[in-house]
Amino acid sequence: MSAIDLREDNQENEEEYLAEEVEQFLTFLVNEEFFGLELLSVHEILKPVPVTRIPNVEEYVLGVINLRGEIIPIIDLKKRFDLEFTELKASSRFIVIMKDEKRFGIFVDEVKQVIKVPISQLNYTTDDLALSYGKLIESVSRVNEHLILNLGVNQMVDFLQIA
């Protein structure tokens, strides 16, 4: 997977878009697909640590971890998208997301970089994507020939049935 190299782009378009608002996203890979997450809601990124299993919950909830005294759930995003369980790789990471006062983590294959997307280039999806997780996608942007599906945190909380 090639990295998204935005440096050149940004420099070129800097004059044009200087005044325009940008939104920052953290991009990551799940099942070789690029996803984005609003940077403000990303709390932390960690290397995988041992997970404590919770009995009788959905399969995609891997369990909980102890994050400096707080117990937060870790969700296997790939499994939630109805695929198989994620294989642990050297590049796998936990991304801890914060919404209001709640924190939860998602298990992803690889964390890429933070990108700045001008608002004009964000397409808010109105039509249903033919995906099981279509509702999760808040917006889509195209960066360097990569299509990045930006996930909405609010939708995630419902989708992952947290609380």
Binding site: I54, P55, N56, V57, V61, V64, E70, I71, I72, P73, E101, K102, R103, F104, Q161, I162, A163
Partner: peptide
């Protein structure tokens, strides 16, 4: 610690 703080209440726990 309640599980519901960051997750939800799980039956049995």
């Amino acid at each position: 610690k309640s599980l519901a703080k960051n997750y939800k209440n799980v039956p049995g726990l």
